[in-house]
């Protein structure tokens, strides 16, 4: 297991290099540059700016410069947030995203697995339809509808919670963002759990367990859940990454200083260093999460050996 983990970490380096290369050149191929805007700059000033950011060099030279810089831990300045470096932005944004993301994913797992399991046990009952129907509204309503709707109801009409803002991380400010982030994931987790639980409950080893006269609750919790959770585990890696980095809508609507907005805004603003920094960070995050998921998978399913 340790050797496997080490090997996976080792193989992350070429993966990262590949991603850096693709992202770097894709970004540069995209039309429009970081300093194109409504007010066109006089050519001399544009030249000054490009020189100041080393953007006047050939692209391949910029690429190698970049590689050398990141090896020294220098991810460069942002072109949009001129007073901050990329490292500043990521180190201030990520803890916020992580806090929200982890809370949302935990909420999604607890509620989703619970609802999915119950629905699977009472397959095709009214209860099943009710649980799955409710879970589905989480998927059926896009988060850019859900977020303003919650803000309108709980922030404006009822005044229970602040409409937006981060408030230094006070819990009241996190409630709506976490719920909005978790809702679609709850639905996905519930559906995946239900699907695989139905399958597992009909499989031979559960029949055997039942035939042995085991208590139904023990069958479900000890045996079925372990197998039934496999697809959910598979799903969690990408889901976590998606929640942490893909929360751009929630961040924009609830005005949260997370990392998601840098990513999309960076791409739209051609803020090359920010995009590259976030891409690298994101890739590292996913590589780690995938490794963790694989290890958990191997742990839960003895039939899969991590070799």
């Amino acid at each position: 297991m340790l050797a496997y983990t080490l090997r996976r970490i080792g193989s992350a380096i070429p993966t990262l290099l590949f991603i850096i290369t693709i992202a770097f050149f894709m970004m540069r191929l995209a039309p429009g540059g970081p300093f194109d805007r409504e007010r066109q700059l006089p050519p001399e000033i544009e030249a000054n700016i490009l020189r100041a950011y080393n953007l006047d060099k050939p692209v391949y030279e910029q690429y190698f410069d970049y590689l050398i810089n990141i090896m020294h831990g220098d991810f460069g300045p942002s072109y949009k947030y001129l007073d901050f470096t990329v490292t500043d932005l990521i180190t201030t944004g990520f803890p916020v995203s992580l806090r929200l993301g982890m809370s949302a994913i935990l909420l999604a797992i607890f509620v989703g697995v619970f609802a999915g399991t119950i629905a699977a046990l009472k397959q095709n009952s009214v209860f099943d339809y009710m649980v799955m129907g409710t879970a589905m509204t989480g998927i059926a309503i896009p988060n850019f509808v859900m977020a303003p709707l919650l803000a309108l109801i709980f922030g404006v009409y009822l005044s229970w919670l602040p409409v937006a803002g981060w408030g230094g991380g006070a819990i009241a400010y996190q409630v709506m963002p976490i719920i909005t982030l978790a809702l679609p994931q709850i639905a996905y987790v519930a559906r995946l759990t239900r699907g695989s639980m139905v399958e597992t409950m009909n499989s031979n080893f559960i029949r055997t367990a039942r035939a042995k006269g085991l208590n139904e609750r023990i069958v479900v919790i000890r045996h079925a859940l372990k197998g039934g959770l496999l697809p959910v585990i598979s799903y969690l890696g990408p889901a976590t990454a998606e929640i942490i980095t893909g929360s751009v809508v929630i961040e924009a609507i609830f005005d949260i200083p997370g990392i998601g907005r840098y990513f999309v805004n960076g791409a739209l603003n051609r803020d090359y260093p920010v995009v590259m920094g976030v891409v690298i960070f994101f890739a590292l995050l996913i590589i780690t999460l995938n490794l963790v998921v694989d290890l958990i998978y191997g742990f839960l399913d003895p039939r899969v050996k991590v070799e």
């Binding site: 303003p148 803000a151 922030g155 404006v156 602040p162 409409v163 937006a164 803002g165 005005d255």
Partner: peptide, 18 residues
């Protein structure tokens, strides 16, 4: 100064007295 760009959200914050 709140720097939020989403004008619809800002309008809600205004109404909520934030």
């Amino acid at each position: 100064f709140y720097t939020q760009e989403d004008r619809t959200a800002v309008q809600k914050r205004f109404r909520a007295g934030e």
